[in-house]
Design a protein around this nucleic acid. Sequence first.
DNA 1: GAGTTTCGATACGCTGTCGTTCCGATACAA
DNA 2: TTGTATCGGAACGACAGCGTATCGAAACTC
Lengths: 219, 219
Amino acid sequence: MTQTSSVPAPGRKRDASRDDALRQAALEVLAEVGYDRLTVDAVAARAGAGKATCYRRWAGKAELVVDAVSHMKARLEQPDTGSLRGDLIALTSHATAGDDSFRVDVQAGLVSGLVRDAQLREVFAERFVAPRKAVFRTVFEHAVERGEIAPVPNAELLSDIVPSLVFHQMILTGRPPDAAFILRVIDEIVLPLAQATPQTQSNRSKQHQNQHQTRTPSS
Amino acid sequence: MTQTSSVPAPGRKRDASRDDALRQAALEVLAEVGYDRLTVDAVAARAGAGKATCYRRWAGKAELVVDAVSHMKARLEQPDTGSLRGDLIALTSHATAGDDSFRVDVQAGLVSGLVRDAQLREVFAERFVAPRKAVFRTVFEHAVERGEIAPVPNAELLSDIVPSLVFHQMILTGRPPDAAFILRVIDEIVLPLAQATPQTQSNRSKQHQNQHQTRTPSS
DNA sequence: GAGTTTCGATACGCTGTCGTTCCGATACAA
DNA sequence: TTGTATCGGAACGACAGCGTATCGAAACTC
């Protein structure tokens, strides 16, 4: 596109900071109004940039959003609380409203575009779903190494439960669920399944660790 | 609005069949292009009606879609196969691609609008979520009556698992999941949880019916 | 028949968004 | 200094969708 280093390139250099500013602005607008209501003008205005600067870098709205999402920082650290329940809570608690909801808001904003934009789906799967799956898998592996649970063959399916229910709840109510809901899902669904994997009846003898926080919340 | 029977009303009568035609057309367009891409012109054209006829009945696009969805037939019959697993399969199998996917397509089309339209959320919850929840609850109740399982206090949460995962999968892949996926969810998640409700440790003695179809599919 | 209302169809004004183009100012190379 | 490419900002044309207005025909009441 621009230049391939053969020619030293004349004229003013492109300000790389504008790329980051525009991408960040795109994510913010995306989180606030969603993909469909996002306008290039709004993104440029928020970045304090001209629209021409934006179109000099991306072909259009779709490319801008895709690139912004794909440059988004992972911000997903591996929890290590020493217990499966603690790790699961640490991993999913930030999905609630309030604190660190930016990432969740971006996901909600993307929903409207995901339905029909295949490229957006691809980037979304790569940036949001894949990292989360990897962290979940490691959490289960650590629990196995600690002897807390038996190996879980369907860990991937188990990992989808919390995000799916959170997503579902978010769409139905318009906002992310509260912490109590996530606790219920962990304590009443994920943990029981992880602790008593029913496909190998032989490991039923291993269930001595059932005392581990299988309490039911008040609600 | 129109007349309260006091005056016989002059002029040509409204053709009630146009209401149905427009509502049906709205649902079809909704299923095909989604809420945001739905235009009143397209709905009127598909119904073979004029746009004025449409605006004579509804205030705008939002009201039209909301009314169309709320008039949608439930088409959700109570399954009675004699087993919990059979009922669950019968209840959820129509969510897969192919056959009766119209209802699912409408749901997918609604997603983009649900995020910000509270009224749409309300109608959606009433027309899609509530009936489904009721049927699920009855399925669990029947299983309890048959002595197949112990009473499940968190049946509501359990009922959300399949729809949530189906929804999630649909958004991520762009199409409803296949039947095998739903079978896995039922056999590896819902049934084990229903059969071994872990919140009352006392009913652990009741788990003699664990032989009932807890097999794992090949995948 | 006279008056009124709905019908399908079309045209219109309005608004919002897209993507382009121009502007003066600024940064950089030759 | 001259030439070029960028910057933020603003204006532009094109287009799509909404909601309204209007048309001739048809249906219905009086």
